[in-house]
Amino acid sequence: ETQAGIKEEIRRQEFLLNSLHRDLQGGIKDLSKEERLWEVQRILTALKRKLR
């Protein structure tokens, strides 16, 4: 995994995270989306740690 590859994956995950946040802010309670949001946040945290 290169730095560029990790950064690209971070961009993808952040896009997905923002999309999930928008969907959930629409007021629709969706447990699967909430679980996915937490999963994406965990992935992002792990990726950012790899960059250090």
Results as ranks from 00 to 15, higher is better:
E14R: 06
Q25Y: 06
R11E: 06
T45R: 13
F15E: 15
K48S: 02
D30F: 02
V40D: 00
N18C: 15
L24M: 08
R22Y: 06
L51M: 04
I10A: 00
L24T: 04
R22G: 05
H21V: 15
W38H: 12
L44Q: 00
E8Q: 08
L16I: 14
W38C: 14
K29D: 08
L24V: 04
S32K: 13
R49V: 09
L16F: 04
L31E: 12
G26V: 07
A4W: 09
T2C: 14
K50N: 04
F15D: 15
V40M: 04
L47H: 00
I28V: 14
K48H: 06
A46P: 00
L37R: 02
S32C: 12
L44V: 04
L17R: 06
F15K: 14
R11S: 04
S19Y: 06
V40E: 02
L47G: 00
I43T: 10
S32D: 13
N18S: 09
R36T: 06
Q25H: 12
L17K: 04
R11L: 07
Q41G: 03
D30V: 03
L47V: 00
R11M: 08
R11K: 10
L16T: 02
I28H: 08
E14C: 15
K29G: 08
D23P: 02
E9S: 04
S19C: 14
K33S: 05
R36W: 05
Q25F: 06
E9A: 11
A4G: 05
Q41T: 09
N18I: 13
K33E: 02
R12H: 04
D30Q: 03
L37G: 01
I43P: 00
L44K: 00
R36E: 09
E1Q: 11
E8W: 05
L44D: 00
K29F: 15
E8L: 09
Q13E: 02
N18L: 12
T45S: 11
R52E: 13
L51F: 04
E34W: 15
E14L: 13
R11N: 04
G26I: 08
A46K: 06
L16S: 01
T45Q: 13
L44F: 01
E34Q: 14
E9R: 06
K48W: 11
W38F: 11
Q13M: 15
L31W: 07
K7G: 03
A4E: 13
E1F: 10
L51V: 02
S32E: 14
R42F: 04
A4P: 05
S32P: 05
L37F: 12
L37W: 06
L37S: 08
S32A: 14
R11T: 05
E14M: 12
Q25M: 13
G27L: 07
V40N: 01
R49C: 11
S32G: 10
R12G: 01
V40C: 05
T45L: 11
L31P: 14
D23S: 07
K48E: 02
R22H: 09
R49P: 00
V40I: 13
L31V: 13
L37M: 13
A4S: 08
G5M: 14
T2Y: 10
I6Y: 02
R22W: 04
R52F: 10
T45N: 11
W38S: 09
K48T: 03
E9V: 04
K33T: 12
K29R: 12
Q25T: 10
L47M: 12
L47I: 01
Q25R: 09
K33A: 07
E9T: 03
S19T: 09
L51I: 03
L24C: 04
R49M: 10
A46I: 11
T2F: 11
K50Y: 04
E9P: 02
F15H: 15
W38A: 14
R36I: 06
L37T: 02
E34C: 15
Q13P: 01
L17Y: 11
Q13N: 09
I6E: 01
E14T: 09
T45Y: 08
K50L: 13
H21S: 11
W38K: 14
Q41H: 08
N18W: 12
G26E: 09
G27F: 15
S32Y: 11
R49W: 04
E34K: 11
R36M: 13
E8I: 07
H21C: 15
R42Q: 11
K33D: 05
G27E: 08
L51P: 00
S32H: 12
Q41W: 15
G27M: 04
L20S: 00
W38M: 14
E35R: 14
I6H: 01
I6P: 00
E35D: 05
R49F: 05
K7I: 14
S19I: 12
E35A: 12
R12T: 03
D30S: 04
T2I: 09
K29P: 09
I43Y: 10
H21I: 15
G27Y: 04
I10C: 04
Q41L: 15
T45V: 12
E35W: 09
E35P: 03
K48G: 02
Q41I: 15
T2Q: 09
V40P: 00
E1R: 07
R36P: 01
R52K: 11
R52C: 13
E1H: 10
L24K: 02
N18H: 12
R36N: 04
K50E: 07
I43C: 05
L20W: 01
D23F: 09
S19Q: 14
L16Q: 03
I28W: 04
Q3N: 07
R12K: 11
L44W: 00
L16R: 02
L20P: 00
K7F: 07
D23Q: 12
E14S: 04
I28G: 09
E14H: 07
K50F: 04
R11A: 09
K29L: 09
G5W: 15
R22L: 10
R49N: 11
K7R: 14
R52S: 10
S19N: 07
Q13L: 15
R42Y: 04
D30E: 04
R52Y: 12
H21W: 15
L17T: 01
R49S: 11
K33P: 04
T2H: 08
G5I: 12
R49Q: 13
R22S: 07
R52L: 15
H21Y: 15
T45W: 11
R12A: 05
R52W: 11
Q13W: 15
K50M: 11
G27S: 07
G5P: 03
I43V: 08
L44G: 00
Q25P: 03
E35F: 11
L20K: 00
L44H: 00
Q13G: 03
L47W: 01
N18Q: 14
G27Q: 06
S19F: 07
Q13K: 05
E39G: 03
E8V: 03
L20T: 01
I43N: 07
H21M: 15
Q3W: 10
E1Y: 08
T2W: 14
L24Q: 03
R49Y: 05
L37E: 01
R22D: 06
Q3P: 07
S32R: 12
Q25L: 10
D23R: 03
H21E: 12
I6W: 10
R52Q: 13
K29T: 09
Q13V: 15
L16H: 02
H21F: 14
I28A: 08
E39H: 05
E14F: 05
R52M: 12
G27T: 08
Q3E: 11
R36G: 02
I43S: 05
Q3F: 10
R36D: 05
L44T: 00
L24S: 03
V40A: 06
L17N: 02
G26N: 13
I43W: 03
K29N: 10
A46V: 08
K7Q: 12
I43A: 06
L16M: 03
I28N: 10
